[in-house]
Computed example of a mutant assay.
Amino acid sequence: MLEVDIAIRRGDFRVEAAFRSDAPIVALFGRSGAGKTSLIHAIAGIVKPERGRIVAGGRTLFDSTTRTNLPPESRRVGYVFQDALLFPHLSVRANLAYGESLTPASERFIDRERVLALLGLTPYLERRPANLSGGEKQRVAIGRALLASPRVLLFDEPLASLDGARKAEILAYIEILRDELKLPMVYVSHAVEEVTRLADRVVVIAEGRVIAEGDVAGVMSRPELESLTGRHEAGTVIDARVASLDARYDLTTLEFPGGTLIVPNIDALPGEPVRARIRSRDVSLALERPTGLSIQNVLAATVREIGSEFGAIVDVTLDLGGTTLIARITRKAADELGLAPGMRLHALVKAVSIDRRSVGFA
């Protein structure tokens, strides 16, 4: 369990936030400058709050009423920064050894060989950071943090400086760590796809305040948060399970209350829970079930609500047997279809629009 209820002042900017979570990965989501980094700096002990309380795993790290303020080196909190921040003059082996040295041998519970195997670091042990790619550096930074045997692991925008391929690589490693080590993590990001894929719970931060908190599917589907997720990325997160794999066409079928989705193949077995993020702009509507088209996902739906208009655009909230889906169409299309609450129709979603970045493991 992680409990945070603090107030922080950074110059003219004030952060007042309270949340608690026992989820394996809780994400702090919001735009740059919202106060996310200030919060994890407070958890790590880099910043001292004006008031409040921070408890991690039943251990009080900070409490203004009792004047408790453990120093960073005593908090047993691992920190992975946006930039790897490795010691440039030390080899990978020595950087990892530094992390291990931060915790007395009697208190270490993370095995070095297991970390090397999980992160695939053995081939790089004698290299120095200058001879590593961006993704390799971040894997070493994660390994260094893990070998300090932390009680909680903090990630501060760890993918921000990486290209698409390296981002996918690190995301996969973080998933492995989540599943193998069962170590609580706090993941800071302003990227919807990262939060959807990794987090179990999300805390949305704006202007130093918590404006939403809850399960990822519920929070990241809320239309009123569109200003933070971005109109281009606005959409719905659906909780589903892997139903079957199609080796011939390299496709995966997901099932959820209200229907099924066909998506490009994902690395998951039948029965595994996953989340699929469907952007509103990738959903089309048809009054009759269409035939003779390439779109693989045709879902029976009922119009629940026709939202506010944004110039030429309107968002239509659909009910798929208890699961929400939002379609973004033109006002002209809405008028031509004669849309109204309670109308039955079909939602069309291209399988290729739900790519690997849009599917996360629940």
Score class of each variant (00 low, 15 high):
L2I: 15
E3Y: 06
I6L: 07
A7C: 08
A7Y: 00
I8V: 15
R9S: 06
G11I: 04
R14G: 11
F19D: 00
S21D: 01
S21Q: 00
A27T: 09
F29Q: 05
G30C: 06
G30V: 00
S32L: 15
A34D: 01
L39F: 03
H41F: 10
A42I: 05
A44F: 06
K48W: 03
K48A: 12
R51W: 02
G52E: 01
R53K: 07
I54H: 06
G57V: 12
R59A: 15
T60E: 03
L61N: 04
T66L: 13
T66H: 10
P71F: 08
S74F: 15
R75W: 02
F81R: 00
A84W: 01
L85F: 09
L86T: 08
P88M: 05
R93L: 13
A94Q: 13
N95Y: 09
L96H: 08
L96Y: 07
T103V: 13
P104D: 03
E107K: 12
R108M: 12
E113N: 09
A117Y: 02
L119Y: 01
R144Q: 08
A145W: 04
A148V: 08
S149H: 09
S149F: 10
R151N: 15
F155A: 13
L159I: 12
A160R: 09
S161K: 01
G164I: 11
I170H: 03
A172G: 10
A172E: 06
I174N: 00
E175F: 09
I176E: 11
L177G: 10
K182R: 12
M185S: 10
H190D: 03
V195F: 13
R201M: 12
V202A: 13
V203I: 12
I211C: 09
A217K: 04
M220G: 07
P223K: 09
E224Y: 00
A234Q: 00
V237C: 14
I238E: 06
A240D: 01
V242S: 04
A243R: 11
S244Q: 03
L245P: 05
D246K: 07
D246V: 07
R248D: 09
R248G: 15
D250T: 13
L251E: 07
T252H: 04
T253I: 08
F256W: 11
P257K: 01
P257F: 03
I262W: 08
I262K: 13
D267M: 14
P270L: 11
E272L: 10
S280N: 06
D282V: 05
L285P: 00
R289W: 01
T291K: 00
S294G: 07
I295E: 07
E305Y: 10
I313V: 14
V314M: 04
V316D: 04
G321S: 05
T324W: 03
L325Y: 00
R328S: 10
R331L: 14
E336R: 14
E336C: 11
G338Y: 02
A340P: 12
M343T: 05
R344N: 14
H346K: 08
I354K: 04
V359A: 12
